[in-house]
Simulated scan of single mutants.
Amino acid sequence: MTPSFEIPCVILCGGKSRRMGEDKSLLPFDSSTSLTQYQYDRLKPYFKNIYLSSKNDKFDFLDKSSNCLILDKGEVYSPIIALQTILQTLKDEKVFIITVDTPLVSIESISSLINESNNFDICVAQTLRTHNLCGVFSKNNLSTINKMLEEDIHKVGYLLKNNNTKYLNFDNDDEFINLNNKDEYNKAIDIINNTK
Rank of each mutant, 00 (worst) to 15 (best):
residue 111 S to L: 07
residue 76 V to C: 11
residue 169 N to E: 11
residue 19 R to W: 02
residue 130 T to L: 11
residue 25 S to K: 09
residue 81 I to V: 12
residue 100 V to M: 00
residue 115 N to V: 06
residue 55 K to E: 05
residue 62 L to E: 05
residue 46 Y to M: 07
residue 86 I to T: 03
residue 33 T to S: 14
residue 58 K to I: 15
residue 123 C to W: 03
residue 42 R to F: 04
residue 180 N to A: 07
residue 13 C to A: 14
residue 64 K to I: 03
residue 178 N to H: 12
residue 81 I to Q: 03
residue 151 E to T: 12
residue 102 T to G: 04
residue 75 E to W: 14
residue 117 S to Y: 02
residue 142 L to G: 08
residue 102 T to Y: 00
residue 53 S to D: 09
residue 147 K to D: 12
residue 192 I to S: 06
residue 37 Q to A: 09
residue 165 T to C: 02
residue 40 Y to W: 11
residue 116 E to M: 10
residue 73 K to R: 12
residue 47 F to Q: 08
residue 109 S to C: 07
residue 33 T to G: 08
residue 134 C to P: 02
residue 174 D to M: 13
residue 20 M to I: 05
residue 68 C to G: 02
residue 80 I to E: 00
residue 154 H to E: 09
residue 50 I to R: 04
residue 22 E to D: 10
residue 109 S to G: 04
residue 66 S to Q: 11
residue 15 G to Q: 13
residue 121 D to C: 00
residue 144 T to H: 06
residue 12 L to P: 01
residue 35 L to V: 09
residue 112 S to R: 08
residue 107 I to M: 00
residue 87 L to H: 05
residue 97 I to W: 07
residue 20 M to E: 00
residue 58 K to C: 10
residue 45 P to Q: 11
residue 191 I to R: 06
residue 27 L to G: 00
residue 82 A to I: 02
residue 106 S to C: 06
residue 181 N to H: 15
residue 119 N to R: 07
residue 139 K to V: 13
residue 24 K to Y: 12
residue 3 P to A: 11
residue 44 K to C: 10
residue 52 L to V: 10
residue 151 E to C: 12
residue 76 V to L: 15
residue 140 N to G: 07
residue 47 F to D: 06
residue 128 L to G: 13
residue 72 D to T: 10
residue 144 T to Q: 10
residue 88 Q to T: 11
residue 36 T to K: 00
residue 140 N to P: 03
residue 174 D to W: 01
residue 125 A to P: 00
residue 4 S to T: 15
residue 34 S to M: 02
residue 139 K to W: 05
residue 192 I to T: 12
residue 72 D to S: 04
residue 39 Q to Y: 06
residue 190 D to I: 10
residue 96 F to Q: 03
residue 189 I to S: 10
residue 134 C to H: 07
residue 109 S to K: 11
residue 128 L to D: 13
residue 65 S to W: 00
residue 160 L to S: 05
residue 86 I to F: 01
residue 159 L to E: 02
residue 59 F to Y: 14
residue 28 P to Y: 08
residue 110 I to G: 01
residue 36 T to A: 10
residue 41 D to V: 04
residue 53 S to A: 13
residue 17 S to A: 14
residue 5 F to T: 08
residue 146 N to P: 01
residue 155 K to M: 09
residue 75 E to K: 14
residue 82 A to L: 07
residue 101 D to F: 08
residue 159 L to S: 08
residue 115 N to M: 11
residue 12 L to R: 03
residue 118 N to Q: 15
residue 73 K to F: 06
residue 5 F to D: 09
residue 38 Y to L: 08
residue 143 S to G: 00
residue 69 L to Q: 08
residue 180 N to Y: 10
residue 80 I to Y: 01
residue 187 K to T: 13
residue 163 N to T: 15
residue 96 F to H: 03
residue 185 Y to H: 08
residue 76 V to R: 14
residue 171 D to C: 07
residue 20 M to F: 12
residue 43 L to Y: 10
residue 23 D to E: 11
residue 48 K to A: 05
residue 94 K to M: 02
